[in-house]
Each structure stands twice: as structure tokens, then as C-alpha cells.
């Protein structure tokens, strides 16, 4: 399933989607950046509440398919412009991380 298909099926909001056709291979949840670096797999959706600019570098280097910000967190416009330039998709939802994960699980099986 691609990021854009997940967005349609979930109703999550898109903050930026420079690469909507990226394939989703799984999900990783975490806010500690070096845990994410060490544990996330290529193509994972990354669920987090961290919103500083460093999430963009981590997403880029760990090759995640998209950052999914939960709990109503959004990235500032300066961070979004960096994400756009690095080809990082950013999705947001007001759901809790748990609820968002359940919803994603139901969509990607």
C-alpha cells in the first residue's frame, strides 16, 4: 500500500506529501530518535509526537515512508519546508498514538 492510499483510507491529514507513492512496509512507533534510527525498517510509517526539525533528518536517513504525527501534533512551516525538500511525507491525526496505530493496522492488515 502506498502513502497516498493510506491517507485516503484513514482520513488522516496531509501536511506535506512530496513522495506520495512511497510503499508502506510496516509501522514503527517511538519518540527517542536513536531508537528509531536503530529499530525502524525501511518503508515503515513512523508514528511519533516529536515535532522538532531533527525528525526530518531521522526520517530521511532511516528511509521511513512517512512521519505520522499523532495526538494533534503538527510540524511548523519551517520544518515542513525542510521535509518537502528532503522528500519526506508528513501526515497528522488528532487520534492518540494507540488509536492511530489500530486504525493503520486495520487498513494495512
Amino acid at each position: 500500500m502506498t502513502v497516498s492510499e493510506l491517507v485516503s483510507a484513514s482520513g488522516f491529514d496531509v501536511q506535506c506529501a512530496p513522495c506520495p507513492e512511497k510503499e508502506i512496509s510496516g509501522v514503527y512507533i517511538g519518540d527517542l530518535l536513536s531508537w528509531v534510527m536503530g529499530k525502524a525498517s525501511q518503508g515503515d510509517l513512523w508514528l511519533t509526537i516529536m515535532s522538532n526539525v531533527n525528525v526530518v533528518a531521522v526520517a530521511s536517513l532511516a528511509d521511513v515512508s512517512a512521519i505520522v504525527l499523532t495526538e494533534g501534533v503538527v510540524l511548523g512551516s519551517d520544518v515542513i519546508s525542510v521535509a518537502n525538500s528532503k522528500g519526506i511525507n508528513v501526515i497528522t491525526t488528532n487520534l492518540s498514538t494507540y488509536e492511530a496505530a489500530l486504525k493503520i493496522s486495520g487498513i494495512i492488515q
Binding site: 527517542l32 530518535l33 536513536s34 531508537w35 534510527m37 536503530g38 516529536m50 522538532n52 531533527n54
Partner: peptide, 15 residues
Amino acid sequence: SLGFGAGMGLPNMKK
């Protein structure tokens, strides 16, 4: 508070 400091950086480098 920025998300650093888990103490996983050097282990990740090793891995």
C-alpha cells in the same frame, strides 16, 4: 526534550 539522549547512538554505530 528534542528526542536525543536514549544512549543508543554508539550501539547503533556498532551495529
